[in-house]
Design a protein around this nucleic acid. Structure first.
Lengths: 184, 184
DNA sequence: ATTTGCCTATCTACTAGTAGGTATATATCT
DNA sequence: AGATATATACCTACTAGTAGATAGGCAAAT
């Protein structure tokens, strides 16, 4: 991995562990044993770095969608939730949860990049839920887009709450989401 | 309102609008036309200030619980959600959502204060849901404590998500939570 | 000869926090 | 009642540290 990618990777981890305002270029440069100014060589501003990080996640979502395209809706949603569950165990939260916190302080460019990632996620979830409902895999009464948002809000909220309470709470909430969808 | 209470009030607003790491003593002192050092007169550290803010919320929750003690479970939950809904319209999120973000960077004293507020909230919700379920007001299959956490996660997540998407999404999610509880 | 990938050195702005001073109000003692 | 002591509510002036960012240099690769 080249320095540029290492910076993105480290920045990504730091944002999802501590938050945008709680990490600095020094945290990255110290870890990589380079100087502060060298990060500015790749990313002129902190905004530029966070945009690259968001774009990485947009591409990862595309890859994720392609990888599971053959699977059934229940399996798709389960794997989607597992990604968050895996990150949570590593002390990290989702990039959406981490960055939404500072949304109002971001430049328009960062905001619109974050909107793309959010819309992509909601759209994919809505489509998957619709297919699953038609097939009879899922049973729910809500409007599908609202149900998709409820899925995301449960994850984002569970990430936050389980920081304060206990980590296993996240898993309990995750299981409950799946059961609720299947209406068991 | 005396200066001490004004500082708490302003700090509370700033945390819930921008987050703990995104506001400074200067933001408060400029607004109150006093000097930075004067805030340190009342609150020696930033931690001391945030503890006072959390304690204010713990007391407000107690007051809220007392005020609606006579009401029915459905009404209690509805009013609980309305508090968040009201804050959201003012560009603010809940103190729980705002502070959970930086939970790992807080001192033990701040963390334990935040745990008290969280436990108080979960406990009250669990009790209220239990009574409502026994009376037949609510229908849900999950363990009641998990259901209580799901309620909170929906609120915390909806606060975050609606920052990125649209504000009216928060209201849609709120209505959906109530309907889901009543199993309409 | 130019680009790449760093470096040193520096800047401005801001952060939380501290030491010590002062004017005013209030309480206590003679 | 008047003098004295103390507490309140600020202030000025400062420290040490960190933030993001910039200018300009330099060695190695292309």
């Amino acid at each position: 991995m080249n320095t540029r990618d290492k910076i993105i990777q480290l920045g990504d981890n730091l944002i999802r562990e501590r938050g945008y305002n709680a990490f600095s270029f020094s945290d990255i440069s110290k870890e990589l044993s380079i100087k502060n100014a060298s990060i500015h060589y790749y990313f002129p501003t902190k905004s530029a770095l966070v945009i690259s990080i968001i774009r990485k996640h947009i591409m990862q979502l595309e890859k994720f969608k392609t990888n599971i395209i053959q699977e059934e809706p229940v399996e798709k949603i389960t794997k989607f939730l597992t990604v968050y569950s895996f990150a949570r165990r590593g002390g990290k939260i989702s990039i959406l949860g981490a960055l939404s916190h500072d949304y109002n302080s971001f430049s328009e460019e960062v905001q619109s990049e974050l909107k793309i990632l959010t819309d992509d996620t909601i759209t994919w979830l809505t489509e998957t839920l619709n297919i699953g409902k038609t097939r009879g895999d899922f049973r729910f009464k809500e409007d599908t887009r609202v149900k998709a948002m409820l899925l995301i809000t449960n994850i984002l909220g569970a990430e936050q709450l389980s920081r304060i309470t206990y980590n296993h709470d996240f898993e309990e909430i995750k299981d409950s989401i799946i059961n609720n969808l299947r209406n068991f």
